[in-house]
Nucleic acid binder design. Structure first.
Length: 376
DNA sequence: GAGTCGTGGCA
DNA sequence: TTGCCAAGACT
């Protein structure tokens, strides 16, 4: 007796009809056979260790494979097991993520790993309900870990999967809308191989990365071309539908590379929530356009009131532009020598110790300007 | 649902 | 140069 779980269906009648006439098993075979032959040799594919699969999936969120590879390798060397990551120093973990972006990912990962150690005996849970409760594990990552590490037929719908399947079945929904993902989860649940869900899910993503690319897909090399309704109609370049995101908002900032006469640097730890949480930075603030004061004067005032720092400021030493997903920082850089002891909101660090602290890329650029000035 | 949260690569 | 991303999750 088959268990009938009543759940909402996110497919319209047209899509359900397409699936009824779709050659599911032939599609699975063509896709998986291609994957087994052509898949890339990636470091997280050496085994099915659920921990390594987990780390790789978190790193790969919104991040390119080529970028992730060196981070994954060194991260696993430093923290080879769930136990190692759970017991690791937070600063060291953040340092291992430095430059990779979306830093809340690694904070959530370590938090979740501690939860697995304490509540699940160090074994990544293999049930959808339990794994979903872990911090940072959303619908995609849940399906990816369950299918890749445990070979459980759960959909793992990412941008690749939505692009590929929107073309295969000519689905004209806007993939930028959150609710559209549910449609593709329903579709994937109908299509996924029960014999090899791991290869099936990875094959869909691999196809999206190598063949069914966002622009100029290589349809003539595609192993599932015969199943693709968009190719049949010649509309593969029109799919998927994706609405535009809005432009990032520019902000004018001023920053000081603060040092004393011995060359020690004074740095600040950002708050534990929000943008670049827990990372270190050189003192900086957002310029107020309405005052009559220059950036340099505003910066001196800020260093005094925020850090009780009496400083001698250089003229403008350079500028740094840094683009986030939703913001653009235009930072004017000044060099500042402190003449007193600033308050406890700043930490004094020698240049040699600086490499132990995790900085966002924007503040690495700021420090480079300071080093350039010292050479001149 | 819309906004927040990084970074580097590429057409 | 500008836009658009690339294996999303959280609030």
């Amino acid at each position: 007796m088959e268990i009938n779980i009543r759940r909402k269906i996110h497919m319209d009648n047209d899509l359900q009809n397409k699936l009824r006439s779709f050659s599911i098993h032939e599609f699975q075979d063509d896709l998986i056979n291609w994957y087994l032959t052509e898949k890339r040799d990636l470091p997280w594919r050496k085994d099915q260790d659920p921990y390594k699969v987990w780390v790789s999936e978190i790193m790969l969120q919104q991040t390119r494979v080529d970028t992730v590879i060196p981070y994954f390798t060194s991260f696993i060397e430093k923290f080879p097991t769930i136990e190692a990551l759970a017991d690791a120093n937070e600063e060291e973990v953040l340092k291992a993520w430095e430059g990779l972006g979306y830093y809340s990912r690694v904070r959530n990962l370590q938090s979740a790993v501690k939860e697995v150690k304490e509540s699940y005996g160090g074994v990544v849970p293999n049930s959808p309900h339990e794994i979903s409760k872990l911090k940072g594990v959303g619908p995609y990552t849940k399906g990816a870990i369950l299918s890749i590490a445990y070979n459980i037929p759960e959909p793992a719908v990412d941008g690749n999967v939505m692009r590929v399947l929107s073309r295969i079945l000519s689905i004209w929904e806007d993939i930028a809308k959150p609710k559209t993902r549910k449609t593709f989860e329903d579709v994937t649940y109908e299509l996924i191989s029960r014999d090899d869900p791991s290869s099936f899910n990875q094959a869909l993503m691999e196809l999206g990365a190598l063949i069914c690319t966002p622009t100029s897909p290589s349809c003539l090399l595609c192993p599932v071309r015969e199943h693709c309704t968009a190719f049949e109609e010649g509309v593969q370049a029109e799919l998927p539908i994706k609405s535009k995101k809005k432009k990032p908002k520019p902000l004018q900032m001023a920053a000081a590379v603060l040092h004393d006469s011995d060359g020690n640097l004074y740095i600040h730890k950002r708050p534990s929530t929000g943008l670049l949480a827990n990372l270190w930075e050189h003192p900086n603030f957002e310029i107020v356009a309405t005052t009559g004061k220059t950036y340099r004067e505003q910066l001196a005032d800020y260093l005094q009131t925020e850090y009780e720092a009496k400083v001698v400021l250089s003229e403008l030493a350079g500028t740094v532009e840094h683009i986030f997903s939703h913001l653009i920082w235009n930072i004017s850089i000044f060099i500042a020598e402190v003449k007193n002891s600033p308050n406890e909101n700043l930490v004094a660090v020698s240049p040699e110790e600086l490499s132990k602290f995790a900085f966002p890329v924007s503040h690495q650029k700021i420090y480079q300007i300071y080093k350039g000035q010292n050479l001149a």
